[in-house]
Design a protein around this nucleic acid. Structure first.
Lengths: 361, 361
DNA sequence: CTGAAAGCGCTTACAG
DNA sequence: CTGAAAGCGCTTACAG
């Protein structure tokens, strides 16, 4: 049982470096040096000090240490929500790499609210986090770019580093590290997979104008159509408000209600949308893949449960890379751009097209 | 564009309170008081100071503030992994409540590793987190109890507070807040639901001796059998190593391989296990609920996708309550015990038993 | 290899 | 309502 120091009024208070020094019969400078482990020291002194540390259950005060100029041991991540599977997996990667480097993770959630994002960044600046990682889908309009440039410069000035994860770069004059993954390539592969099975009428579910993630997936979809010489019908691109299950259900439901089915396959902009769309199809007695083929994006838990062919994103690798690059860069305010690959994962949601569905031609 | 202070060597450095004071023509004490907002102050002075703060983009240094004795603005949570849906939802609740209270969240992941748990707690002590929340299933043996008692006392001594979430209390002499939910009651309701549908041979999938979560669910299962006058057959309780999908698959698969089916219904100790077991059943052509009825526990995402009747746990409420109680308690090292309710959520995974399965009698 | 002392950026009695 | 000064617990040149 470690002893506790009693202050004047008898209440226990945590031991300080002074207590340790007194206990070990050395100066505080010596204790500090021995604990830092980067100075030469006499073994006898060393063991005296370590013994005192153990006996007093001494834990250094991170605030004092931070004030005295030592780089703090924390990285920060800001996400919309920690229950979104994609964010959770990226965060998991961040945690792993942070733990490996002996860093603590500060996590901020915004719920998509700008006020909360600002407040989170502010608190992280106060804490002097070594890096601040922002992740996820955004609409990179002028206001967004200015906000990010402001964050980047403020963090750099404070010796920290802004990292953008799954977002586009901000431009050469903004000090930020960017870790992206290949949305367009993945969407190209997914669409090609359907095209190779003979599908020509492929519904794209979940377009959202202005937002980087769905837009780059639509781009891959269109590129694949073009590459296979299949005409592009804008009427097959369905808009969705958010990339969630319920939206997938709504979009498919409304499509089926609107008239005779004019597609044989579906490319859902993510797995959650695929799961929702699948439910709407089943309510009409349409099975996957016998009646309709479907491909998703993300390769997150729902995909395995519904046997969905989808596109794998290196979620955790994104988080690990973000931390690795941020901690590596000696100079705060570094700029770097990394693009990680994606690939298709084949399950059982695509059948060859036997030409049932009627096109508008 | 905020001005940046240039230090001697020309590199920008973040503004300090001194810069603000000089810029506003007042003393640092005045700036400090105005920013704290808890002292009387002259409106004219106030606006001068706020203007300087804005123009210099001043952010207070949390380390200096912490050192000077102000309670830090962070709560900490320690979980096995952030991608486990249960942990993620509890964490979401913690974040919400923390954000509401203007606190930052420090999140530690342990991967179930004791070394990492210890390291995380240590770092959180260094950071002087206001509360440290530990969540999840454990085997509360002597070593565990001693470890927790040590954490609790060390945190209390440092003015912080240990909170146990979904874990049993440690005893009256240990300063910890405990927020539990009703596992046994939920399991009783789930089992009763199956019994009411006429099932008598109910497989319990995922017993794990010594671990609090599965053990209290088994207890509810047994209590329900007893209450309904159905004989308890220990042979219907199947052991599982971890509460994951793959284990559910393995347990069901081995059970079906071992001989003729001797149950008409399944109570899975959580939804993931239910999803895995369902897959094994389907491989044998057994459908839910036509051939086998099934009930799970958690009411997390997989449940809706597989139409599973299950037990709802107030995951997020657990996290919110943990933070609320911890921040409320003025005296660090408070003791408190809260038990939140659970309830059954009926979907489409239970049919009346028509007496197909053969019991051992 | 070790110690005495300055300083990091705040807050808060203590005076006025 | 405001200012001068001590002090929080460390680290690190500066001496020796």
């Amino acid at each position: 049982m470690p002893r506790r120091i009693a202050s004047g009024d008898g209440k226990p208070r945590p031991a300080t470096i002074k207590d340790v020094a007194r206990h070990a019969g050395v100066s505080v400078a010596t204790v500090s040096r021995i604990l830092s482990g980067t100075y030469p020291n006499a073994p006898a002194t060393r063991s005296k000090v370590m013994r005192a540390v153990r006996e007093l259950d001494y834990v250094p005060n991170a605030h004092a240490r931070g004030l005295a100029g030592v780089r703090p041991k924390s990285v920060a991540i800001v996400v919309n929500s920690v229950i979104s599977p994609h964010y959770a997996h990226v965060a998991q990667g961040v945690h792993e790499e942070a733990a490996r480097a002996g860093r603590l993770c500060i996590v901020g959630t915004t719920g998509g609210d700008l006020e909360r994002e600002l407040a989170a960044i502010q608190l992280m600046r106060e804490e002097h986090a070594e890096a601040v990682i922002l992740v996820g889908n955004v609409n990179p309009d002028e206001a967004y770019r200015e906000r990010m440039a402001g964050y980047a410069r403020a963090l750099a000035a404070a010796g920290s580093q802004l990292v953008l994860c799954g977002r586009p770069p901000l431009g050469p004059d903004v000090p930020a590290i960017v870790v992206e993954y290949d949305n367009t390539g993945g969407a190209f592969a997914a669409t090609s997979h359907l095209l190779s099975a003979g599908h020509k009428r492929i519904l794209f579910l979940g377009r959202r104008s202005g937002y980087t993630t769905p837009e780059s997936r639509v781009a891959g979809y269109r590129a694949a159509l073009a590459a296979h010489g299949v005409p592009h019908d804008p009427g097959l691109e369905v808009d969705g408000a958010r990339m969630v299950r319920r939206e997938g259900y709504r979009m498919m439901r409304e499509r089926l209600d609107a008239g005779p089915r004019d597609f044989t396959a579906v490319f859902a902009s993510n797995d959650l949308i695929a799961a929702g769309a699948r439910e709407a199809l089943r309510e009409r007695g349409l099975r996957i893949p016998e009646d309709v083929s479907m491909v998703g994006f993300d390769d997150l838990p729902p995909a395995a449960d519904i046997d969905l062919t989808t596109v794998y994103i290196p979620h955790e690798e994104l988080g690990r890379t973000a931390v690795r690059l941020a901690l590596k860069s000696e100079t705060p305010g570094a700029s770097e751009h990394v693009l990680l690959g994606t690939h298709i994962v084949v399950r059982d949601s695509v059948c060859p097209n036997v030409g049932e569905a009627s096109g508008p031609d």
